[in-house]
């Protein structure tokens, strides 16, 4: 349900932005995430950024995983 993938925002014009995933680009809408800045990563679902990806949280989760798995 609700396929969404991380995309990087390249440029912004009003509510429109150009986003990129591995060289693939598309005009996306920032209506749901007006706080986005150029260079941010967003979760892209049906052409709309539905959330900004929290890069710190992403790192923390990976660190947590490393720690959790240390003893195994």
């Amino acid at each position: 349900m609700c396929l969404a993938i991380p995309a990087k925002v390249l440029s912004i014009e009003g509510y429109q932005a150009e986003a990129e995933i591995a060289g693939v680009t598309r005009q996306i809408s920032l209506r749901l995430t007006p706080e986005v800045k150029v260079g941010d990563w967003v979760l892209l679902h049906t052409g709309y950024a539905i959330n900004v990806i929290d890069e710190d949280a992403a790192k923390e989760t990976l660190k947590l995983l490393e720690e959790m798995c240390e003893v195994y």
């Binding site: 396929l3 993938i5 995933i21 591995a22 060289g23 693939v24 892209l44």
Partner: peptide, 12 residues
Amino acid sequence: QEAVRATCELLG
């Protein structure tokens, strides 16, 4: 190719 992989992820 990475771009093929990305497009496939996007379009399911």
